[in-house]
């Protein structure tokens, strides 16, 4: 009894080998965390179950056909044999049509369940830039609106309606564990519904080639229970706290005295740049430069000094700072929780 079981396990492991090779599935379409990705995963699995036997059968037929008649004495093709073959081919064509039709109907039924989710949605606008994501939360109260970057926090279980816009070229918003992709097209406004049914951090990545740093245009969707989401949101609404110690004060001075302010905003300081991401609560984010680097002081320092070395082509210019200035700036920015 144990042997077949073990054999079966081995078979299952072998089948999954290519997938088991990866330890992280933060961006895998096969590991859904929301209803739409789950619905699509079911459709994909079904499609593979239809396609695989057909591929195997055709391969077997080709090999068998090629080998069976080899070296045989010539069988002159008689009209009767040809008629029989015609009937077989016609039958297989009919079977193909039926399979394709069933397949298509299951596609259509999957579409129906993807287009809209029930419930009052959280409204978020995502604006694509070369090569980062601007995230705007909407609220009927103007002071409750929020702009952040490269990270979308959402409450678990609540639908989110993401409005997609672009200010430059076409990008595509794709978080495989939640849903398929939708393009951000200049001149158009697109929408996509999402819902995360379990808490977690889901990686997404631009999926439409958008220029030099298309590869480094990632974002994270972070799904949290409603209470934690609310706390996060309240904290994000606050302007940046004024720096308390001398290093951070020097860091803020360095920020305000250098070219940073041309493009970035830190609410609570006299800055208003919109070309780059809002940095008001930079210290709380997981990554830097749209998923390019983990958010650590060392990486931040490297990024500020040499962005073109890390992300060639990025719109951020290199900054020639004194070492003490740089240290202070890092301390200040990382302190913006």
């Amino acid at each position: 009894m144990t042997l077949p079981l073990r054999a079966r396990r081995w078979a299952a492991a072998a089948a999954l080998l290519p997938l088991a090779a990866c330890d992280q599935r933060v961006q895998s379409a096969l590991d859904p965390a929301g209803p739409q990705a789950e619905r699509i995963r079911r459709l994909m699995v079904m499609s593979i179950w239809i396609a695989a036997p057909i591929a195997v059968a055709v391969t077997a037929a080709v090999v068998w056909a090629a080998l069976r008649g080899r070296d045989s004495a010539h069988v002159p093709e008689t009209p009767r044999a040809d008629r029989r073959m015609a009937a077989t081919v016609a039958g297989l064509v009919a079977a193909t049509v039926v399979v394709l039709f069933v397949w298509m109907i299951s596609d259509f039924s999957a579409i129906r369940s993807l287009s809209k989710l029930d419930g009052r949605p959280l409204a978020v606008t995502l604006v694509g830039h070369q090569w980062w994501w601007e995230v705007q939360y909407h609220d009927s109260v103007a002071s409750h609106q929020l702009t952040t970057a490269n990270e979308i926090h959402i409450p678990v279980g609540r639908p989110v309606l993401v409005t997609l816009e672009s200010r430059d070229v076409i990008h595509s918003f794709w978080v495989p564990r939640l849903h398929g992709k939708r393009d951000l097209i200049p001149g158009y406004t697109n929408r996509i519904w999402l819902r995360a049914d379990k808490p977690g951090a889901f990686r997404g990545q631009c999926a439409e080639f958008c220029g030099q740093q298309h590869a480094n245009m990632a974002l994270w969707v972070i799904a949290e229970p409603q209470a934690r989401f609310d706390a996060w949101y309240r904290a994000q609404l606050q302007p940046a706290a004024a720096p308390a110690d001398s290093t951070r004060i020097a860091g803020q001075k360095a920020f305000l005295g250098n070219s940073c302010v041309m493009c970035h905003t830190i609410r609570g300081t006299p800055t208003g740049g919109r070309n780059g991401p809002d940095l008001t609560h930079l210290g709380g984010r997981r990554t830097l430069a749209a998923g390019t680097l983990p958010n650590t002081p060392g990486h931040l320092g490297g990024w500020v000094v040499d962005p073109q070395g890390i992300k060639p082509g990025t719109t951020m210019p290199p900054n020639n700072l004194r070492p003490d200035e740089l240290r202070a700036l890092i301390a200040y920015l990382e302190g913006l929780k």
């Binding site: 379409a29 990705a37 619905r39 699509i40 459709l43 994909m44 499609s47 593979i48 396609a51 057909i54 591929a55 055709v58 391969t59 394709l100 397949w103 298509m104 596609d107 999957a110 579409i111 993807l114 595509s172 495989p176 849903h179 398929g180 992709k181 939708r182 999926a207 439409e208 080639f209």
Partner: peptide, 22 residues
């Protein structure tokens, strides 16, 4: 035939939304 079958797969809108441009 393998390429044709994956082609029928991505003819589906939901399947394609996941796999498009991958």
């Amino acid at each position: 035939v393998i390429g044709g079958l994956t082609g029928v797969m991505i003819a589906s809108v939901p399947f394609d939304l996941q796999m498009h441009d991958t």
